[in-house]
Simulated assay, not measured.
Amino acid sequence: MSTAMTTVYDTTVTAVGSQVPAFIEHGILIFFGEQAPAELHDISVLHRVDVADDGPRPGDVVHLGEESLEVLAVGDVVRDNLLNLGHLDIKADGLTEAKLPGDVCVRKGPIPLLATGDAFRITRPATTAEQDLS
């Protein structure tokens, strides 16, 4: 039985910086809202927000185009950075405790290279009752 998911953040990619593939090779994907300063465009995936109800929490799922990654850990400033600036740092390091306050940690492994028009979305289980039973 699958758990219903609620979308807490939903955006569309509007640009992918020229240096993004190099960061992905190191397991890092950086997002900024479209209004980010020009000096950040080369290293970032820029996006336009459609839904911004909350930031990620451990157990949420980050959807990057067709790929889905479970959130393992979230730093203290992630929610504010995402909701105020559209800024998020995804690190495929497998850590269950974020090293830096802006980190969102997911499993070790490849991160997909997004393209203009792709979705960037965060979903959360609609209920935590099933988690409480385990």
Rank of each mutant, 00 (worst) to 15 (best):
P110E: 14
M1I: 04
T127D: 15
D103E: 02
G75I: 08
E130Y: 01
V104A: 10
P58L: 06
L95R: 11
F32C: 06
I111S: 01
D132E: 15
T96S: 00
D118R: 00
L95H: 07
P21A: 13
A52M: 02
V51P: 00
I24K: 07
R48Y: 06
K108P: 01
T116G: 02
R57S: 12
E130H: 14
V8Y: 04
Q19A: 13
A73S: 15
R107H: 13
L133A: 05
T116C: 14
M1Y: 06
Q19E: 15
A129I: 09
A92W: 09
Y9K: 02
L100K: 08
T6V: 14
D42K: 01
V62I: 15
G109C: 07
D54K: 04
L72T: 08
P112K: 11
V77W: 02
G117N: 14
V8H: 10
G86V: 02
T3W: 14
V77M: 10
A22N: 12
G27K: 06
T128E: 11
T128Y: 10
T3C: 07
N84H: 13
L100G: 03
Q35A: 13
N84A: 15
A98I: 01
V77L: 08
D89V: 13
F120N: 12
G102C: 14
T12H: 13
D132I: 07
A115L: 01
L95A: 09
K91C: 00
I24R: 14
L72E: 05
K91P: 01
P56C: 09
D80L: 08
D60M: 06
H87W: 03
L64A: 06
Q131V: 14
T116M: 03
I30Y: 02
F31D: 02
V71K: 03
R107A: 15
P56G: 10
A38C: 02
S18M: 12
S68F: 08
D118N: 10
V49Y: 02
A119M: 04
G86I: 08
G75L: 06
G94L: 06
D53R: 10
A4R: 09
V106R: 01
S68H: 12
R124A: 11
G75E: 06
D93A: 03
H26S: 14
G17Q: 09
F120W: 15
L82A: 04
P110H: 06
D50Y: 00
E25I: 05
P37R: 02
R79V: 08
E66N: 15
I24E: 02
R57V: 09
E70R: 10
A4K: 04
D42M: 03
D60V: 05
M1A: 13
D42R: 00
V71E: 06
V62S: 11
D89Y: 14
D118Q: 07
A38L: 12
G65W: 04
S68K: 00
L69P: 06
H26D: 11
A4L: 00
F31I: 01
V61Q: 12
P21F: 13
D60Q: 05
D93Q: 00
S18Q: 15
L114N: 13
S44D: 00
G86A: 03
G86S: 10
F31Y: 10
R107P: 05
L46T: 10
G117S: 14
P112S: 14
V16Y: 11
L100P: 04
D132W: 05
R107L: 06
T6C: 13
D53C: 04
A52L: 01
M1H: 13
E39A: 08
H26F: 00
D10M: 08
V74S: 05
L114W: 11
T14D: 08
